[in-house]
Amino acid sequence: MKRPLIFLITSLSLILGSNAASAQVKIGYIDLKALIAQMPETKDVKKQVEAYQKQFIDQLTAMMNEYSDRFPCCDGYPKLTDSLRDVIGKEFQAIQKRMQDVQDDAIKKVEAKSKELYKPVSDKAISALTEIAKENGISYVIDSSKNNRLIVAFVASDGINLMDAAKAKLSIR
């Protein structure tokens, strides 16, 4: 039972290996994050994201000022009755929770807006890379950006770095 299985696996390996060896596969690589960072559109998108983010920073600053005005100092806190301390403590916790909720919501909204604004830029870069790969007969383009979780990044020894061609295609100096 084991022999036919081993024979089958060995035969398939040899057949697939010989087909792969006869096919000419070109592999290109590029640091996609670095390319996108150098595109002129990225500067505009970054400014838009920062302006959007500033709205939330201003809102949180106003909340912090309100918080500071409501609870200016705790010097008189020990002199308060237990029931007043409980009321103030609950109000204090409610404000802190509200601020944390606003901050969490702001982070989600800024991330969503950032993805929305950067999508056309990354689509343009990927489109240019697709054209370059077709023009150069490249079968696979691997993103060699650091911390890229989508693709295991590696650079083949005979791979072709597409950064210069992509920069030229996108008119980046």
Rank of each mutant, 00 (worst) to 15 (best):
N65L: 10
E66I: 06
Y67T: 04
Y67S: 03
Y67C: 02
Y67L: 00
Y67A: 04
S68L: 05
S68G: 02
S68W: 00
D69F: 07
R70P: 00
R70C: 00
R70A: 07
R70W: 01
F71A: 04
F71T: 09
C73A: 12
C73M: 07
C73Y: 05
D75S: 14
G76I: 11
G76S: 13
G76H: 09
Y77D: 02
Y77F: 15
Y77I: 11
P78L: 12
K79W: 06
K79E: 07
K79H: 08
K79I: 07
L80C: 05
L80Q: 14
T81P: 05
T81Y: 12
T81C: 04
T81G: 15
D82V: 14
D82S: 12
D82G: 09
D82C: 03
D82R: 13
S83C: 01
S83V: 14
S83P: 02
L84I: 07
L84W: 03
R85Y: 11
D86I: 14
D86N: 13
V87P: 00
V87L: 06
I88F: 12
G89Q: 14
K90L: 15
K90D: 15
K90H: 15
E91K: 11
E91V: 14
F92P: 04
F92D: 12
F92C: 01
F92I: 08
Q93R: 10
I95R: 11
I95W: 05
Q96R: 08
Q96F: 05
K97W: 01
R98C: 00
R98A: 10
R98W: 02
M99F: 03
M99A: 11
M99G: 07
Q100C: 02
Q100R: 06
D101V: 07
D101C: 03
V102F: 05
V102N: 03
Q103E: 10
D105N: 13
D105K: 13
A106R: 09
A106F: 08
A106Y: 07
I107Q: 10
K108E: 15
K109C: 06
K109L: 11
K109T: 02
V110R: 03
V110D: 06
V110N: 04
A112M: 06
S114V: 00
S114Q: 09
K115S: 00
E116N: 04
E116W: 07
L117C: 02
L117R: 01
L117Y: 04
L117K: 02
Y118M: 06
Y118T: 01
Y118K: 04
K119W: 00
P120Y: 12
P120H: 11
V121H: 05
S122G: 00
S122C: 02
S122W: 06
S122N: 07
D123C: 03
I126C: 03
I126W: 09
